[in-house]
Write a protein that binds this DNA or RNA. Structure first.
Lengths: 154, 154
DNA sequence: CCGATTCCCGAGTAAAACACTCAGGTTTCA
DNA sequence: TGAAACCTGAGTGTTTTACTCGGGAATCGG
């Protein structure tokens, strides 16, 4: 039971957008640099996010992406699903389906549903407002502005 | 976010054991037949379950496996972990660790913990007692005793 | 208008994980 | 003694993952 990098990166990138797209849009170059994610991979990822209607794009120089909805209207589940992350523990394939279920089929569909509801109850606003994220985001901004790596004192 | 067949089969097999090992042990041949799982794969799987202390084995003819603990003492999490199913959504590897976390590191470790607690709160007894499992298990037994496929009327 | 910047897209690919299988060996019962 | 069961290490084809690559199309600033 694990997440793919796609799902994880998608959430990270969406949080980055939520943190930085106050007025205008944010370029993927910036996101890639701040979050240490390959630009090419991010582009691929944002295709999905755009198709899912989670972000809007602005083409051309000074272009970029911005959130398509209010932060409160975007749930963790929305992002993960947009990024091809299936929230489904059930057994697909030949051996077991809804019509010819195995002993545990009901269990897994049930569990998947509960996980989904849980993930759907967390929205971007909640995530971004956590103390941990706030401090980390500030650090990222500071290091970026001067383009000089800042040594964080312990 | 999905389960491996190992994790799913492990739970299915453990439920089968719970349903059939009233007094003596159950052979993997029986489990394999009832649950339509490859015998060789089951054997591999039960190595892990035994190492994890979830089942005991009896070698030789008339041998087999039995649960090593009370059904109430075995949680879904126990079985999944024994079957190599990692309940960990966090990002491992070079880019992100506890010491050099990414924006979302805390989120994932947190979530993993909650999923684990949820799965650890369900035990084999609960699972086996569900109406759905009871009826399905009865069907499996009936078809097995006479060794004649039974047509279920709709 | 031109060139830099950015989004946009389809396709390809190396590495890892998965879902098994196989060929034997050991223990025990009848 | 032989069949039934557990036990073990190793192998293997397929699928998924996590990317990369090469090119195209919009847009802005000068």
């Amino acid at each position: 039971m694990k997440l793919t990098t796609k799902g994880r990166y998608a959430v990270t990138a969406m949080m980055d957008l939520a943190l930085h797209a106050k007025l205008d849009c944010v370029s993927l170059v910036d996101v890639a640099e701040r979050q240490k994610i390959s630009l090419a991979y991010l582009e691929q990822l944002f295709r999905s996010l755009r198709k899912a209607g989670l972000v809007n794009s602005v083409r051309g120089a000074k272009g970029g992406y911005m959130l398509a909805k209010e932060v409160k209207q975007i749930s963790l589940a929305d992002i993960l699903i947009a990024a091809d992350e299936k929230i489904n523990l059930a057994c697909g394939g030949s051996s077991c389906s809804d019509s010819t279920p195995c002993l545990t089929h009901g269990l897994w569909t049930n569990l998947s549903q509960q996980f989904f509801e849980f993930l759907d109850s967390k929205n971007l606003d909640d995530l971004v407002k956590s103390r941990e994220v706030q401090t980390m985001a500030t650090m990222q901004d500071v290091t970026q502005i001067g383009n000089i790596p800042v040594q964080i004192s312990k």
